[in-house]
Nucleic acid binder design. Structure first.
Lengths: 209, 209
DNA sequence: TACTGTGAAGCGCTTCACAGCG
DNA sequence: CGCTGTGAAGCGCTTCACAGTA
């Protein structure tokens, strides 16, 4: 998709974890952190942490560790959290509202710039601090909102329609919270978050001893 | 006594996908489905599907495919969705409410038997159809609720405390929706669902302007 | 001495090619 | 012939052992 060195998704996920933990350490005034301490804070093995970070250059100092703010900044650049990322949310139900109001998003420089729904009772109202707009207008208004990322928080039956409207509006990165498979153009990336899947995995383990 | 063969987590996740899609096919009156059709419905490669299913015996018929209701039932047993799974949710904020009311949970035979919060304004009220109870009483009331699985939907700052109360009440399987690492006893299993992590992974792929 | 960086080994999931059965 | 089941190859992430550096 772009010409940068490919970073494995599991690594990216861990980088997001480091980022969040480094933010907290920075606010607490911690200046350096070594891989063993990061393991204690994150549950991720120290060797794994060093391996992840070494991919991007020599970020740490032997005998000392990693400089907290430098490392946070560096990871921010890799994850592109060094700029504001505009996000649009489709679906103003409980989940959509939860996402729209989620404080964690702001911590990562995500900004919700639009909340859409198809329910006439919700359109025009302000929910979770956002004006609810008609999803029928999505594909036309999306380019003007400058949103790179669209989150789908609608029931399974309307998910593909919502996604198609997003694609028509130029969206290329989707986070799909609906429990259904979304067919997407080849140059688009859809990431699924399935609550039921997570519960089901846990259920499988629920009886062994 | 763990006599069952270990099933990889990625496989379990896909089984949950098959299960959901088979439910729909069953309701639509479809009797058989072959791996190519399941690929079309799920986006999962046909060879992967056959490999996944072959692990549990010869479930399909060459030249025909898989019997929809038989397969759904079989997967239900593997994932232990053939019985009601009681779930307790800690945190009655927007996310906790979204989970408590999520229709997908009922489709998988999950039943929310308790919704807890620490906010005195919420305790005693009914939200998303559930009475909100005081989280301070959680560890005592948990055994009586018969919940195997506990979902943590509280802010990061109270997540460890909520988890500890759940562990004290005998919970051993946690779904953690808070953006923080939870320390858990060795015989407990914590699965993390991090919205910000998912957004961050997507952000990495977003194009430079 | 304390800690990072890294080549190599290890391991598990995925993909392939094709055997086997209805 | 159509479609599943499977041993084997492929591949990528993780873990290990230790070299290298402040």
């Amino acid at each position: 998709m772009n010409g940068q060195p490919k970073v494995p998704v599991p690594t990216l996920a861990r980088l997001a974890t480091y980022y969040s933990l480094l933010r907290e350490a920075e606010e607490a005034g911690v200046e350096t952190l070594n891989s063993a301490r990061i393991e204690g804070l994150s549950g991720i093995a120290a060797t794994q942490i060093r391996k992840d970070l070494s991919r991007f250059g020599e970020l740490g100092k032997p005998g000392v560790g990693y400089n907290v703010s430098e490392l946070r900044e560096h990871i921010g650049k890799i994850l592109k959290l060094d700029r504001v990322q505009h996000v649009v949310i489709i679906g103003a139900g409980r989940l959509g509202q939860a996402l729209a109001a989620y404080p964690g998003l702001a911590d990562y420089s995500f900004e919700v710039v639009g909340l859409f729904d198809s329910d006439a009772k919700k359109i025009g109202k302000t929910l979770s601090g956002h004006l609810v707009r008609d999803v029928a207008t999505l594909s036309k208004s999306l380019p003007g909102l400058g949103a790179r990322i669209v989150a789908i928080a609608v029931p399974a039956s309307s998910a593909q329609g919502a996604a198609d409207a997003a694609f028509a509006g130029g969206a290329r990165w989707l986070l799909n919270f609906s429990p259904t498979h979304i067919k997407s153009p080849a140059d688009c990336l859809v990431r699924d978050v399935s609550f039921t899947q997570e519960f089901a995995v846990l259920a499988h383990y629920s009886e062994d001893k």
